[in-house]
């Protein structure tokens, strides 16, 4: 089968999944339960994506822990996203040198 067909199908399905709710949800959600659920969902998604995956992210548990601790400490003190992300990477890289 032509690869173009596959790519079009992939792209259209993925776009519709994002577009339909984004375009058609116009009203403010009234349900307190659903609003609370939506308030927590981003933090819950990021947490589940990060743990335990962060410990496997560098291919070496020691460098991953070095980066994780760095990210934890810096974000605890409210440093900007990019500072935390790049410092964690730098620390994982440095730990990998030993």
């Amino acid at each position: 089968m032509n690869i173009a067909l596959y790519v079009i199908v992939m792209a259209v399905v993925t776009y519709l999944i994002r577009m339909i709710p984004f375009v058609f949800f116009r009203k403010k959600i009234k349900s307190k339960f659903f609003r609370s659920f939506l308030y927590y969902i981003p933090y819950a998604v990021l947490s589940a994506m990060t743990i335990p995956a962060i410990f496997y992210s560098t291919g070496n548990i020691i460098t991953a822990i070095a980066g994780t601790v760095t990210a934890f400490v810096l974000s605890y003190f409210n440093l900007p996203l990019i500072v935390v992300a790049l410092s964690a990477t730098a620390m994982a890289f440095i730990a990998g040198l030993f």
Binding site: T58, Y76, A85, S87
Partner: peptide
């Protein structure tokens, strides 16, 4: 290899400050 952690570092920077401020967020995150 080191770059593999960059996104997760960013996620932590998003989660941790609100988890520190609000017990409810902390519990949901854990």
């Amino acid at each position: 290899n080191a770059l593999g952690i960059v996104l997760y570092g960013m996620f932590m920077a998003i989660i941790i400050p609100p988890a520190r401020r609000q017990k409810s967020v902390l519990i949901v995150v854990i």
